[in-house]
Computed example of a mutant assay.
Amino acid sequence: MTNRNTLDQGSLSKEVQLILALLNSGSLDETAQKHPQLFTDLNWDLFIELNRHHRVYPYLYPRLSKMETQAVPAEMLERLKWEYRRNTVQMLQLSGEMSNIASHLAELNIRCIFLKGPVLGQELYGDLSQRTSRDLDFLVPIDQLEDAETLLIRLGYEKEDKFESLLGDWKWREHHTTFIHPVSRINVELHWRLGPGPAKEPGFDALWRQSRTSPHFGQNVHYLGPEDLFMFLAVHGARHAWSRLRWLHDIKMLLLGKQPPDPALLTRLLERYSHSAVAGQTLILAAELLETPVDPALSPLMDNPKARKLARDVLFYLPRIVNLNTPPLEPEVEQHFSRYLPSILSPRNRLLRSAGFLYPYAADAKTLPLPKPLHFLYFPLRPVLWSWRKVTGVEKEM
């Protein structure tokens, strides 16, 4: 484990400290004996709620239920037991649908890579019931996106997202569209990018070459190679300010797994796509909060001053129960997040973001409708139209 002391964990609530101690313990009975103060004067209702929010209860409940020490009230264990069983049923349902979708895609020669979901539960935890998943995320080549959408609709799914686009900007501004099945209520996120743009990322062919297949789900279920998976999980977690410990625990399980990322390959990948600081943040959090051993070859990533600052910023969110994707946010949280989110970008990605701002939005066409042959004029008019909306408050961007 690293001996760096980047994080001051004194600001974390007692309930969060107990969750961290349980996640880091090989023997929960030993934890209760060594740190009895963590189990006293605790808000157990908040402890349960934080377990739900951070989505670590499927991993913790099987261990808590086997404790000989009666440190956790029986009523609390029953509540966690119910959540655990509900999640197990949901994960089994998702795993069946994942295999079903993968088979149908294969029949149409549509390549797909599953990004999260049951395949990560099995790969990282050795048991899909020990990880939560609310939906199925999979990536297809953009030139097969329409065929994949048609298949999902044929399988009974209904498309929820409708992007307004002026000059095809949805291809890089957005990264997935959502489908929901009205009967099973399963959500599917169909990706054509790993994350929102504008930002450079590996193309589908590169990801496909490094992808793996799962012996548990069949040869049609592909998932990311270890280096690509680390970068994807790190960027995803950073973009959400690591506001759920489950995302960070995934990183720990990946680094401790049978096939961890190769440090040399990972470092080159991170440099190529300008994610070194985010990776350093990820490793610092995993090392200091979850006591994760870090390969010495990756230590330089943790020495980056920007990485250390980004890691400290995350402590603001851990004690809070907040979904950063669901506005409105509390003013204090919104203000903090509005500063944090741009800070995770590299200089190159900030430049791309600024350039993306100059690319016309659908809102520009609403402000000043022009015939299609004149749509090229939206490029020089873009700053003027944006300023007009800003001053008049007529419309927001997409």
Rank of each mutant, 00 (worst) to 15 (best):
K34T: 13
V16M: 11
F114G: 00
L229D: 00
L46T: 02
S338I: 06
S243F: 02
S129K: 15
A363Q: 15
D313A: 09
P342I: 04
R134C: 10
H191M: 12
R4C: 12
A238H: 00
G218D: 02
R350Q: 09
L42T: 08
G203C: 05
L315I: 12
A21K: 08
W170M: 08
A363R: 15
I110N: 01
K34D: 09
E30Y: 07
T150I: 15
L255Q: 02
K366L: 11
R308P: 11
N109W: 06
R193Q: 15
F337P: 01
L190S: 04
L7D: 07
V221K: 10
M253D: 06
F138L: 07
L94A: 02
L352I: 06
L324Y: 04
L46M: 09
N349A: 10
D303Q: 14
A234I: 04
S243A: 11
T69N: 13
N304Y: 10
E83H: 09
T2I: 02
T367F: 01
G280F: 00
L368V: 07
H181M: 01
T88D: 14
P369I: 08
T292D: 02
P331W: 02
N187M: 14
M231I: 12
E97Y: 04
V278Q: 07
L229S: 04
A365G: 10
R348E: 14
E288T: 04
M302W: 01
K200H: 15
E330G: 13
H176P: 09
I321K: 14
E330L: 13
K66L: 11
R350W: 08
E49D: 13
M76V: 14
T292K: 02
H181T: 03
A286H: 01
Q70T: 12
H54K: 01
L245D: 07
N3S: 14
R131D: 08
S27L: 05
K81W: 10
W247R: 08
G203Y: 03
I321L: 08
L324T: 06
N51Q: 05
T213Y: 09
L152P: 01
S276E: 13
E123W: 10
T392A: 07
D295V: 07
T367P: 10
S25R: 11
E395H: 12
R209P: 07
G197W: 03
V56H: 06
A363K: 15
A102S: 14
R382E: 07
W208C: 13
F39W: 03
L329S: 05
R63W: 03
G121A: 07
Y223H: 04
S99A: 10
R52I: 10
P369K: 05
L115R: 00
E149W: 07
A362R: 05
D205W: 06
T292F: 05
